[in-house]
């Protein structure tokens, strides 16, 4: 298992190199820079040149690239002039927001999606199956930003049960944190619930015909117990796969949800950086996102080994 982890981590290095090279290439290809954002629409070329000089944006690309990689080797992702903050610091400051949003959303999606999938499998082709799968399809089809706005309108404005936006840090106020994160996580969860429920149903149906399930039934176990204990454990590998993919998709969805709910997360940081052409932040954000994807894939691979002992012999 450790060998697998070490190999996968080593394999991540070229992936991260490619990501950093591509993100740096984008800085050369995409028009516009942060000087234009600072100077405004009526800026002259002289104004822009002056600001570029102040910010060091007038240095040749290769010099900037060498400087950035040299910093990276020392663990320094550079500095954002617009934020007046180190990029590493800026990302780490926002990471808890995005991770708590994504993890809570995925947790909620699993809590609702897996039981819904199991119920659908147990009652296949009957009304609970059709109701669960219909609801999953609706969740899958609705755009997350629209869901977010509807939740704000209903639970925030009409019922006044939840705040309409903003973020309270967990360290500052646990209840406030839960109130601030529940609505955005709920919106994000609804979009992930569908794939998880559908995959659970299909994997459970496949396992439900297995000999060991028949044996479990023959031993006199109740249907709920058969599904919760035996069918679920047999179906976990494909479910883990879809949850792992869902984590990545949730990270993407968090970009939108953070905008809608005004959450100061990594997604909003990166979107803001793209719109302002704050390249050190864009590069740092992309590198971090790639790293998170690699780590999530690694964790999913390790979880496969944990839930299915048969795979350990191949590891």
């Amino acid at each position: 298992m450790f060998r697998l982890a070490a190999i996968r981590l080593l394999a991540a290095v070229p992936v991260l190199m490619v990501v950093s090279l591509v993100s740096f290439g984008l800085t050369l290809l995409v028009p516009g820079d942060m000087a234009a954002e600072m100077a405004g629409p009526s800026a002259t070329a002289a104004d822009l040149a002056r600001i570029r000089g102040e910010l060091g944006l007038d240095r040749p690309p290769l010099v900037r690239m060498a400087s950035w990689y040299s910093g990276l080797l020392h663990g320094d992702l550079g500095r954002s002039v617009l934020l007046n903050q180190g990029v590493t610091e800026a990302i780490l400051e926002r990471l808890p927001v995005t991770l708590s949003l994504t993890c809570l959303a995925l947790g909620l999606a699993c809590l609702a999606g897996i039981p819904a999938g199991l119920v659908a499998a147990a009652k296949a082709r009957r009304w609970p199956d059709q109701a669960a799968m219909g609801a999953a399809l609706v969740g899958l089809s609705l755009p997350d930003f629209w869901l977010g706005l509807v939740l704000i309108w209903v639970l925030g404005v009409k019922l006044n049960l939840m705040p309409t936006g903003g973020y309270v840090a967990l360290s500052a106020d646990a209840v406030g944190w839960l109130r601030s994160i529940t609505l955005p996580a709920g919106a994000l969860a609804l979009t992930q619930l569908g794939p998880i429920a559908r995959m659970t149903r299909s994997a459970a149906l496949e396992v439900a015909d297995s000999d060991f399930i028949r044996t479990a039934r023959a031993k006199g176990l109740t249907e709920p117990r058969v599904y919760a204990r035996h069918v679920l454990s047999g179906a976990l590998v494909p479910i883990l796969t879809v949850v792992g993919i869902g984590f990545g998709l949730s990270l993407g969805g968090a970009l939108v949800i953070e905008q809608v709910f005004s959450l100061p997360g990594v997604g909003r940081l990166v979107i803001g950086a793209v719109l302002r052409r704050d390249w050190p932040v864009i590069q740092g954000g992309l590198l971090l996102t790639a790293l998170v994807f690699v780590m999530v894939n690694l964790i999913v691979d390790l979880l496969y080994l944990w839930v299915d002992p048969r795979l350990r012999s191949n590891a």
Partner: peptide, 18 residues
């Protein structure tokens, strides 16, 4: 000063008094 990119969320916040 809160930075809220989404117009609907700003309006909702004003309506609720946040």
């Amino acid at each position: 000063f809160r930075f809220m990119p989404e117009g609907g969320a700003r309006t909702a916040g004003l309506q609720t008094g946040e």
